[in-house]
């Protein structure tokens, strides 16, 4: 079972503070959507509204076409994987995972079988009799996922579920999460502030800022063709070059007026948008690339960040002839 989620002009205000400002979104059934943004952008508020833990001041939420106004969390076709996992410490893993089934009046034998199958799905086969405190953080995360999926929700909500894990484990869990989502086919709505995590797992990313949706699209789209300066900056490092009257500081460019956004890795010797000779002012070897700051000779006040190939032999003072391969011009 899986269902789409329609968010129609949802606003959330606390007194004079606005957490969400007329947000509208269409999430397809079976899609893996990531709500991405800095803390305080409203992403968790939106997740809570979908889950029924908060009510919007205005607007409505439909899940599978059904209006969710006044429907309590327990009656919604959603379940949540909480940030702190919220496993029941006094229950075994099997009891934890079968809790939702127990609430639905399913017989003990059936729910034990289902719980064991779910534990196997998340790679915790045969550990049903353990208690949560015996597990590592990553394992608790898996149990929380199994517990939320056991009741076969139409939409699974994940509130920064990987936030407490160390980097290596987080990358591994991202891959597993994606694989599990493909297997079960449930709609996943996942909240995070880590843009790499978002790109690693999402079918589509919703970039949020200050209670508004800045951008909504596949990772490639959002990264390479951001619709706003905020998105451009939040998704990764970016050089912003003002263009006025067909002129950038380093010379004429054949683009409309606005802010020319170029990612550091899009600048190279063979770029089509010509920047000209640049002097390296700083360079450091980063393993996968060389990270350098350069200044065009034609525009001594402009500093550009450039990722050069691993093999590039540069040091401070080296002159390079550079151009941009991919770029976007934003007018706002």
């Amino acid at each position: 079972m899986t269902a789409g989620v329609s968010i129609e002009r949802v606003s959330q205000r606390y007194g004079t503070a606005t957490a969400l400002d007329a947000v509208s979104l269409e999430i397809e059934a079976g899609e893996f959507v990531v709500l991405l943004g800095p803390s305080g952008c409203g992403k968790t508020t939106l997740l809570n509204i979908i889950g029924g833990f908060a009510e919007p001041t205005e607007g409505r939420v439909l899940i599978g076409g059904r209006d969710m106004a006044g429907v309590a969390p327990k009656d919604r076709p959603t379940t949540t994987v909480f940030q702190d996992y919220a496993l029941f410490p006094h229950m075994s893993l099997r009891e934890n995972v079968s809790f939702g089934l127990r609430m639905r009046g399913i017989s003990r034998a059936d729910r034990a079988a289902k719980a064991d199958a779910m534990l196997a799905l998340v790679g915790l086969e045969g550990r049903g009799d353990r208690r949560p405190h015996e597990l590592s953080g990553g394992q608790r995360q898996r149990v929380a996922l199994a517990r939320a999926l056991a009741v076969e929700p139409e939409v699974l909500l994940l509130d920064e579920p990987l936030g407490a894990l160390d980097l290596k484990l987080r990358r591994q869990m991202q891959e597993e999460l994606k694989a599990i989502q493909r297997r079960v086919g449930t709609t996943f709505v996942h909240v995070t502030h880590d843009q790499e995590e978002a790109m690693a797992i999402a079918d589509r990313i919703v970039v949020m800022n200050a209670g508004r949706v800045e951008d909504f699209g596949p990772p490639r789209e959002v990264y390479l063709r951001p619709k706003t300066l905020f998105t451009a900056g939040f998704m990764g490092e970016v050089n912003r070059v003002p263009v006025v009257g067909g002129h950038a500081p380093f010379g004429p460019v054949a683009v409309p007026d606005g802010t020319l956004c170029i990612r550091p890795e899009a600048i190279s010797a063979k770029g089509s948008l010509h920047i000209g000779l640049c002097r390296v002012t700083e360079a450091a070897f980063f393993g996968t690339h060389v990270r350098a700051h350069v200044t065009p000779l034609a525009a001594p006040d402009l500093a550009l960040l450039v990722h050069l190939p691993q093999s590039a032999a540069v040091e401070v003072g080296t002159l390079l002839d550079l151009g941009a391969e991919a770029f976007v011009v934003l007018t706002e």
Partner: peptide, 30 residues
Amino acid sequence: DHQKAAERAARDLGAAEWQVLALVSAPMLA
């Protein structure tokens, strides 16, 4: 907060309030 989070998870999984009290809150606070 730990307690509140577990209660919230129980409600999310379909527990009525008396079930939350009897199966989660009270045992956790035994």
